[in-house]
Amino acid sequence: MRRISHGFASAIFEVVYLGLATNLMLVLACLPLLVLVIGTDPAEMWPYLVVAAALAAPGCSAAFTVFREQGRNGAGPLRTFLRGYAATWRKALAIGAATAALLVVLLGDVRALASSAVGVVVVPLLLVLSVLALAVAILSLVAIAEVPIARLRDVLRAAVLLGVRRWYLSLVSLLIGAVQLALFANLPAIAAGVTAAAALYLIWANGRYALRPVLPAAEPLTD
């Protein structure tokens, strides 16, 4: 029987460590959201969930930074996560807050108009806009992880344009996110401790491919 090479075993260990370390940092960065989702009734606490979801956005952009920097500068995932958080948190928080506020308005209108006569026409449009808002937010978080110095206006413009033009890639990212949320609803420990990094990695890779027409040649994140 052929023995497993040291290089292969080392690569497997690095991938596992990357995933577990990223999951740990994500749990810490998104702790308010996790506590509210697990320990409260979302239907009653939704205003706080909206705020907590916005606060969780920098954790996602920091995780995307970890994936971007993997193997480039010798820094471990914990340090890279913190550096990515510091580099992107302002823009990520703005993206998260704007998206959360927009979704509150759109979904609130969906609920209010669902039983009305105009709801047949307006509700599908509002739902499409809600999906588009989520897709733009995901692409924007990937973009600021790739180019932290990019202007937020340029990031949002590119995310809207490519999110619509490459809608099929946006749907893939949203589907991955939906599967992760469904897993979290049923098995929160597994979702937060095992699969979160894998799901975000797939979303990052997909979003990075969607943004490829506007991304410059990537450079490692420096101190």
Rank of each mutant, 00 (worst) to 15 (best):
C60R: 00
L156P: 02
R111G: 10
P77M: 06
R79D: 10
A94T: 11
L113S: 11
I12L: 11
A159T: 04
A87L: 13
E44Y: 12
P220N: 01
A98Y: 03
L132V: 04
A21Q: 13
A217G: 02
A133D: 06
L126V: 01
G7L: 00
K91S: 09
A196M: 06
P148F: 12
G76C: 06
R208I: 00
I203T: 12
V66P: 00
V66C: 09
I4E: 08
L126W: 02
A92C: 10
V136N: 02
L200D: 02
R166P: 00
R111A: 15
R111L: 08
L24A: 10
T222H: 08
F67Y: 09
S61T: 15
L132I: 00
A9E: 10
L113Q: 14
L200V: 07
W167P: 09
A94H: 02
A178K: 03
R151K: 02
C60T: 07
L127E: 13
E14Y: 05
A210L: 08
A182M: 14
P148S: 15
G19E: 04
S115G: 15
A86F: 12
L200Q: 01
V118H: 03
A63D: 14
E14A: 14
L103W: 10
A101K: 08
L28T: 06
L126N: 01
D154E: 14
A75D: 10
R83N: 04
L49P: 03
V16N: 09
Y17E: 04
Q70F: 06
